[in-house]
Amino acid sequence: MKAENILEVKDLVIEYPSGRKKFLSRERLRAVDRVSFNLPAGGSLGLAGESGSGKSTVVKAIANLLLFNNPETKIRGEILINIAGKEINLANMSRSGMKKYRKLIQIIFQDSNSSLNPRFTAGKIIEEPLLYNTKLGKNERAERVNFLMEKTGLQEDVFFRYPHELSGGQRQRVSIARALSTNPRILIADEPVSSLDVSVQGQILNLFSDIQKEFNLTLIMIAHDLSIIESVCSDVAIMYLGKIIETGRTNRVFENPAHPYTQALISSIPVPEYKSEKRERIILKGDIPSIMKKPSGCVFRSRCPKAADICSEKEPEEKEITSGHYFSCFF
């Protein structure tokens, strides 16, 4: 593991048990297939892709929440984190073993409505992680909560409010304050703004940029909206059916998308600008296939406008076009 990296994911494979039974054993669904990436401390990675591409599964594995949901999930490969020079593999870490590290990796979920306890006031929600992960006294905890509320732009009166009394933007700020309370090194945000209005979305995205600098965080953000990734993340990885099909610096990937899927994704974003002539768009046919029926060879070939015979025969290898910009396609 390189010293500057805080997180290295190597050949991560995640399989869920499926309902169907095969002879003696259950069939397994491969939700994530040999995913590898590195994140330097202070970096920010955006994960993009359609629903069903496995992006949430990857971040849940990093936050060690998968075994918690379904103990039969199989995780192979390595999730290495670098804590004070020590290398720790989080894949298949037990619940009790994870306890020490959980405060270092925090996650913010998409729907702030269901991820905040409706019976707790905002103040208590932010304080709760401090109770279990630190040895701070009552006054110190209150001080820390006030500090976090100020940093996340929450007014003092929010402290005594319940989640249902807050607006969507305020609730998302409470989620962020809660995640920051334990001083994490890695912050994961799973579609943090997709349920918010456009005018509030900008406020929250700015907040992410601010706290990332101030708390020296490493950020992993999932967003289906590529323009959000462009404005917040320095690196991007595009996923399709459990694989990373293209990755690199955000500006390089978005200016010169190499994979046909990335090209199609970019061209399907509606651009809020008036154009007298309609631009030519690449429109993909059909939906993302189910992971139970993955195409042979290249996973994208069933929808790819460039698909040829070779695509069904073998899987394309990862190629590097410019430094750090990788993609997997024959063309």
């Binding site: 909206d225 994704l265 399907s268 993909l284």
Partner: peptide
């Protein structure tokens, strides 16, 4: 999803 959104708008 965005790709499906493009299909529906078309």
């Amino acid at each position: 999803d965005v790709t499906v959104q493009a299909q529906i708008l078309d």
